Structure formats: structure tokens, C-alpha cells
Deep mutational scan, measured.
Amino acid sequence: PVYLSVKADNSMFIGNDPVTDETMITALNALTEGKKDTTIFFRADKTVDYETLMKVMDTLHQAGYLKIGLVG
């Protein structure tokens, strides 16, 4: 499974590897070998604001990742 996490300080990680807004999709493409039907499990600290969550989800959708599971 692929886990994308947003921490309380808005830092992002794919698994244990830090990513930025600019590198997130490139890292996901490498990890999933470009398979856009891969489910991305998205988790965020409860203090992360809604705007940040939606920005990340919008970026995922624009890149073609449509299977996003929200996890606690």
C-alpha cells in the first residue's frame, strides 16, 4: 500500500520519505510505476486545515490518482 501523510506542521511524507508539493507526484509515479489506479491511503494530522487537505487531494486528482482512501 502507498501512504501519503500530512503532519501537523504541513510536512508531507510518502511512506517515511519526505516530499514537497513539487515532488509529490514524481515520487508517487516512481513508487507506483505510473499505475494511476493504485489506491493512495491519505492520512493527515487532525490539526491540518481543510484547505491544505483539499489542495493535496486536488493535486492527486489532477495527476490521475482517483483512488484515494482516507485513513485516521
Rank of each mutant, 00 (worst) to 15 (best):
T20L: 03
E33Y: 09
E22W: 05
I25V: 10
V56I: 14
T39C: 15
I40A: 00
T47R: 11
S11C: 11
V48I: 08
L60E: 00
L28G: 01
N16I: 07
I40T: 00
S11T: 13
E22Y: 08
T26N: 11
K7Q: 09
A44Y: 15
A30P: 01
K7I: 08
A8R: 06
H61G: 07
V71L: 13
T59K: 15
Q62T: 10
P18M: 11
M57K: 05
P1M: 06
T20H: 05
M54D: 05
L66Y: 14
G64W: 01
V19M: 03
T32R: 02
T59N: 11
T20I: 04
D21S: 14
R43C: 15
K55I: 06
S5F: 15
P1H: 14
T39K: 12
L70R: 06
Y50S: 09
G15R: 03
K46V: 10
A27E: 08
V6Q: 02
L70S: 05
V56Q: 02
T38V: 14
I68R: 02
G72A: 11
Y3T: 06
K36L: 10
F13P: 00
K67N: 14
D37N: 11
I68K: 02
L60S: 00
L4T: 01
D58S: 12
H61N: 10
F41C: 14
T38N: 05
P1D: 06
K35W: 08
T52L: 13
T26H: 13
Y50P: 13
I40H: 00
L70A: 05
E33I: 06
T38W: 05
A30E: 10
T59G: 05
I14D: 00
V48K: 02
E22G: 08
D49P: 15
I40V: 06
G15I: 03
L60W: 01
V56A: 04
A44C: 12
M54P: 00
M24P: 01
D17H: 13
T59L: 15
L28F: 02
H61M: 13
A63E: 07
V56M: 08
S5L: 13
Y50K: 13
I40F: 01
F42Q: 00
A44F: 13
L53I: 15
I68N: 02
V71Y: 07
V48T: 07
T52R: 13
S11F: 07
L60V: 04
V56E: 00
S11R: 12
Y3N: 04
E22D: 11
I25F: 03
T23G: 07
E33A: 12
D45F: 03
F41Y: 13
S5D: 12
G64T: 00
V6L: 12
D21A: 15
V2D: 01
V19D: 01
G15S: 04
L4S: 01
K67F: 11
V19R: 00
F42H: 00
M24N: 00
D49I: 08
N16K: 09
L31E: 04
G34Q: 05
V48R: 02
R43V: 15
F42D: 00
D21H: 15
Y3M: 08
D9G: 09
N10Q: 10
T20M: 03
A63L: 04
T23C: 07
G69L: 15
G69D: 15
K35I: 07
A63G: 08
G15N: 15
V48E: 02
N29Q: 08
S11E: 08
V48D: 03
F13L: 07
Y50F: 12
P1T: 10
D58M: 12
S11I: 10
A44L: 10
K36A: 04
T38I: 13
L53F: 10
D45A: 09
T59V: 13
I25T: 03
T47P: 06
L66I: 10
V6A: 02
I14L: 14
G69M: 15
K7L: 14
T47E: 14
D17W: 13
Y3D: 03
E33R: 14
T39M: 15
L53P: 00
K55D: 04
A44E: 02
I68A: 04
S5Y: 15
T59Y: 09
V48S: 04
E51P: 07
D37V: 04
S5C: 15
I40C: 01
Y3R: 04
K55Y: 07
H61Q: 10
I40P: 00
T52E: 04
A30G: 07
D17R: 11
D21K: 13
N10T: 07
M54V: 11
Y50Q: 12
